[in-house]
Amino acid sequence: MIESIVAPLLIVSGLGLFAGIGLSIATIIFDKPADKREEALRETLPGINCGACGFTGCEGYAKAMAAEEAGANLCTPGGIEVQTHLSEILGTDVGDYQRTAAFVHCNGSCNHTKEKMSYTGAETCYGASQLFGGPGSCQFGCMGYGDCEVVCAYDAIHVEDGVAVVDGDKCVGCLECIDACPKQLIQMLPAAEIAAVACSNHERGGAVRKLCEVGCIACSKCVRSCSSQAITIEDSLAVIDPALCTNCGSCIEICPQNCIVEVNMCVKSG
């Protein structure tokens, strides 16, 4: 009786010991020394794992740089100091650095729009958007419940008079607010002096006027006034290409709805 129990135990124990020895040998043979450069890159990165670089967090970006699959100028939150240090570790030039910051394409504050219904549900943008696009008269506009404000770890975005407003000096470009906005109203723009359309309404002009006093009516006056051809009308909405905009101010002056604004977020260098 005892022998019938002991024998299988010895066999299992022997197999376990054999497997353990095999794994130990395999580890010694195939173990790769730690990539000191990858470790240095990872330690240099801010560690917020925002994904703004396009990789799965700081560790993924460090691996990509160590494997020479990515450059040193993709960490927006780290700014020029981090990017310079990364380039030193890699032994490369940091390349062109252009700081970016978030911009909310809506200016439909409480003074310019009105509510179409009384909403008593969850006080979040995501929750409100599930009910006919939210309580505001413009289904494309900011609902002002501050989902973007909640996810911002840098105190860079706040709801003012019913619309989210970004402090370009504090924004590090982590993209969290972009993901949090259910209406996709937030875009990363160069932190420089450029013009931007503070509207996201794609309805026709007459309908827009009924919903918001400062909504884009796609009149094309801005398009005709832009000497750099930076403005186009796309789906009944004026769109400005920041790469072409020279901030001449002509579109801001001529816009009858005052929905084109000057954006100047170039407050700090990194």
Rank of each mutant, 00 (worst) to 15 (best):
E213N: 13
A207S: 15
E115P: 00
V159P: 03
K114T: 14
D31N: 11
M65F: 08
P46M: 04
S4M: 06
Y126Q: 11
S129D: 10
S227P: 00
K210W: 03
D167T: 03
K32E: 15
G127K: 12
G57V: 05
S129G: 00
P135C: 02
C110L: 14
S118R: 14
T84H: 09
D161L: 05
P33W: 01
Y119L: 04
D96G: 00
M188L: 15
S228M: 05
E203H: 10
D179T: 14
A40L: 10
Q139F: 12
K63M: 03
Q229G: 00
T113D: 01
G20C: 08
D31V: 13
C251N: 02
C222T: 01
E213H: 08
D167K: 09
I254C: 06
T44I: 13
V263M: 08
V104S: 03
G133M: 11
K116F: 02
C212P: 05
G121E: 11
V261Y: 03
V267Q: 06
I28S: 09
E69D: 09
P8T: 08
Y97N: 00
S24A: 13
P77H: 09
T124R: 14
N247C: 09
Q130T: 14
C75T: 03
L244E: 11
C181D: 12
F140M: 01
G47I: 07
E160F: 08
A72Y: 08
N258D: 13
Y119Q: 10
T124D: 05
S109K: 12
A198S: 14
L23M: 13
I186V: 12
I2M: 06
Y61W: 05
K116V: 05
S225K: 14
